[in-house]
Amino acid sequence: MNRTLVGIEPELHLRHARLRFGFGILLLLIWSIASARAQDAVAVDPQAPLSMHATHLLGFEDVKGNTNGTLSIQNGAVQFQKDGQPGVQVKISSIQGVFVGEQSKQVGGVPMTLGKAAVPFGGGRVISLFSHKKYDTVTLDYVDVDGGAHGAIFQLEKGQGEVLKQQLAADRAHVTPQVVGTTKQETTGAANEAK
């Protein structure tokens, strides 16, 4: 009789500990999602000078991929500046095309992915259903001094891609109707801009 009780108690403790651990991770993840969404709700003032927080995904010379920084338009150039470092510029006159797309990404990166994997009973999958966020992607096609074609992709908060595209069009960037393969992701391509 006693032997059975002694055997069950540690098992119960272990189960409770697992549940507490899982619950803790769940709370942590919910808090991360809530804070990410709160950041999302920051309003964009259309009258403010164009400078926005962006993530450089790839393409700009001398800037690593997935770098956070500030994307701005100044002195006839698009500039990306990582905090505390000199900015990298591309002249607007060299830009051949501006394309705005949309993508949905899971928030939190690798730490969040690992956290979700640690949630017991498949809870991580449920969290994944709610832990995604929509972003705008802006693709710039431009040429260098030798005529070589370049492309750069930036990830912006939703809605800011269109603002950037309009500003570039106003600054006479070569927004050409070269979007033959327009997809659902590229709902607001340069073809519309040219019209």
Binding site: G59, G97, T139, D141, H150, I153, T183, Q185
Partner: peptide
């Protein structure tokens, strides 16, 4: 129908 971002990403 391949998004411009994908075309540029492949190229780069």
């Amino acid at each position: 129908e391949l998004a411009e971002a994908f075309q540029v990403a492949i190229y780069e």
